[in-house]
């Protein structure tokens, strides 16, 4: 961040000043303008990273600036983190949300978008009242619409979240992409399918170790609870768990697997 420091260093005291002002302080607005203008290159930089996706750059800069304003408003210097590590995810989060909403709007008609919003409200209301997840018929009754429309709306909601993982996987830190991150960490990564890998490993554990692993990780019990159930000390559980996990880990790591 040294380059950034020299470029934006003069804004740091202003951030502290802004954070210290009361919400109704008359100096707030002018200070906020200076901060947003000063940090604007960050928003522009992030907007450009998303520019190849077919949205006009101006629009993206606008969305990114909204994110920047949020970041300026929420940042607290006394927490000890620098502004960048706070602002970058905030801004790119805003841009990503924009893309998701945008992409969704193109595929989904207005009527269904409205239905999606109504359904969400009805679901949380009904879940609370019934103490369980509602059925489509119950949602329909609550909204006074035919069940068919609810089904359509539910389907549309699902489409909102079903784009390809490979396409959309991205990371929010500086300008690093997942591609870069993954490249750097290649040696450590397991490329094995866990279904395949775990099967023989869990199978070869002794009955007691398997029980402990199951209780701890899939039965959500604490080490103390497991100790009681299995009839050994908590320390012993801890040790067995560590050994078993080491074994699982080394078996799952292709580099250390002896085959």
């Amino acid at each position: 961040m040294s380059a950034a420091d020299s470029e934006y260093g003069h804004l740091t005291p202003l951030l502290a000043e802004y954070a210290g002002l009361d919400e109704d302080d008359p100096r707030r607005e002018a200070l906020r303008d200076r901060l947003v203008t000063g940090f604007l290159p960050i928003a522009q930089h992030i907007a450009r990273r998303f520019a190849h996706r077919g949205e006009p750059l101006d629009d993206l800069v606008q969305v990114a600036t909204v994110g920047l304003i949020n970041a300026v408003d929420r940042y607290s210097p006394e927490k000890g983190t620098d502004f960048f590590s706070f602002a970058v995810p905030t801004i790119s989060g805003e841009v990503r949300r924009h893309f998701r909403d945008q992409g969704w709007s193109m595929r989904v008609p207005r009527r269904l978008k409205d239905m999606h919003v109504s359904i969400n409200a009805a679901v949380s209301d009904l879940s609370q009242r019934l103490g369980r997840a509602p059925r489509p018929s119950e949602i329909a009754e609550q909204l006074g619409v035919p069940v068919a429309e609810v089904l359509e709306g539910l389907e549309a909601s699902e489409a909102y979240r079903s784009s390809s993982l490979d396409e959309m996987l991205s990371s929010e830190q500086g300008s690093a992409t997942v591609g870069e991150l993954v490249g750097a960490a290649d040696a450590e990564l397991d490329r094995v399918d866990h279904r395949q890998a775990l099967r023989p490993v869990l199978g070869e554990l002794a009955e007691r170790e398997r029980t402990i692993v199951m209780l701890r990780f899939f039965g959500n019990m604490t080490q103390t609870q497991i100790a009681e159930q299995v009839g050994i000390s908590q320390m012993h559980v801890s040790r067995l768990l560590a050994q078993t996990l080491d074994r699982l880990r080394s078996r799952l790591d292709p580099d250390t697997r002896t085959g």
Binding site: E167, S171, E172
Partner: peptide, 26 residues
């Protein structure tokens, strides 16, 4: 602070990709 953003469906086909990204995250 690092945030890994995941969109789409995580199943037997895509879980290894997620695993790699999580490895890189950590």
């Amino acid at each position: 602070m690092h945030v890994l953003v995941v969109d789409g469906e995580v199943d037997t086909l895509t879980a290894p990709t997620l695993g790699e990204a999580l490895g890189a995250l950590l």
